[in-house]
Write a protein that binds this DNA or RNA. Structure first.
Lengths: 179, 179
DNA sequence: CTCCGATATGCAATTAATTGCATATTGACG
DNA sequence: CGTCAATATGCAATTAATTGCATATCGGAG
């Protein structure tokens, strides 16, 4: 029941359509709670049924109409109640490490190739985050409220991507010797 | 389709019952691919149907009988095929960061409390990992094969728990000022 | 003797998530 | 003019995962 809350939290910022939410998700909250567009659309219907959001069709002439969702007071109350609940520990699905456990049965060259790809992914994400940081948070010391929260989320992303790069390097070094 | 492979990988080490797999999961592979016992039992049935594992009932006198599963050659082949496939990017569900995005609507004291709890969790995990490290990998330089893979998995866990602690500290410091 | 906790396995119902597909508009490219 | 990409929303089927419950044995505590 937390995708609902991830969507609500995004709507706190401003009213948005399902499509926008989907796009936005990729960059911000979605990094920490990924969802496909189908899931977002159906969750929005459920949220509307519960009265936590209201939808309004916005007629557009240059492109298909969109349905803009606004969080309601009851939705805001739901966010506050949820925020006060005990937080669940993070859930990770990290297939690459599972593959490492198969070393011995699987040739290390196969694993090394995947480690290189993973390293490149982390590096790419780091680059993107650096851009966001430079563009939106040039002066982190002055932040407060929602902006501070988003900044700290970005910092979390940066730290874990950097950790990913470092770990890949360590693993690649260890496997190079062991070849 | 990757819980199946997580189980197979664990069975590479030695034949195990569903119960053992469940216990083991908590400590090793399960850190990177969590699953409940119900899921493990039903997945084992599916794996047996596919002929990737074989089950054998072991009569026990001091406790209930258990079904010990052994990976087959076809199972081993499946592991190798899976290992060569492109690895999926890690999927994270990190509710705590989502909550941070609600700052402004949610009082920062609520978030701070949860950050403290999360920090304690990371610290606790670090302690457990340190024990495993001391007990099983006192001399990492000499490792090879499956043991090296498990060691690198542990290193991944240690690095990300440490990153978690550091990030919590950063967030707590930032929120203390902003109160 | 009864209850509790660890061991050991599992079913059934529900919810969450993925996969595959469907539809419709507009502008740009060739 | 046809096709492609981006915008925009959604259904249906399947799979994965969670929640809640059920059962059974054994040893130890009270």
């Amino acid at each position: 029941m937390a995708l609902a809350h991830a969507i609500l939290v995004t709507l706190l910022d401003k009213p948005q359509s399902g499509y926008e939410l989907g796009k936005r998700f990729d960059k911000t909250v979605g990094v920490f709670w990924r969802a496909r567009h189908q899931q977002i659309y159906s969750e929005l219907h459920r949220l509307a049924d519960k009265g936590w959001v209201t939808g309004r069709t916005v007629t557009q002439h240059d492109r298909p109409n969109r349905i803009e969702y606004t969080i309601t007071d009851r939705g805001r109350a739901a966010v506050q109640a949820w925020a006060a609940e005990t937080v669940e520990p993070p859930s990770v699905k990290e297939e690459l490490v599972v593959k490492l456990f198969a070393l011995g049965t699987v040739p290390s060259a196969v694993i090394r190739e995947q480690l290189r790809q993973r390293r490149a992914l982390h590096q790419r994400n780091l680059g993107e985050y650096a851009q966001v940081m430079a563009r939106y948070y040039p002066d982190p010391a002055r932040l407060s409220g929602p902006a501070l929260g988003r900044y700290l989320g970005l910092r979390c992303g940066i730290r874990s991507e950097q950790t990913g790069v470092d770990w890949c390097d360590e693993a690649l070094a260890a496997l190079a010797e062991a070849s």
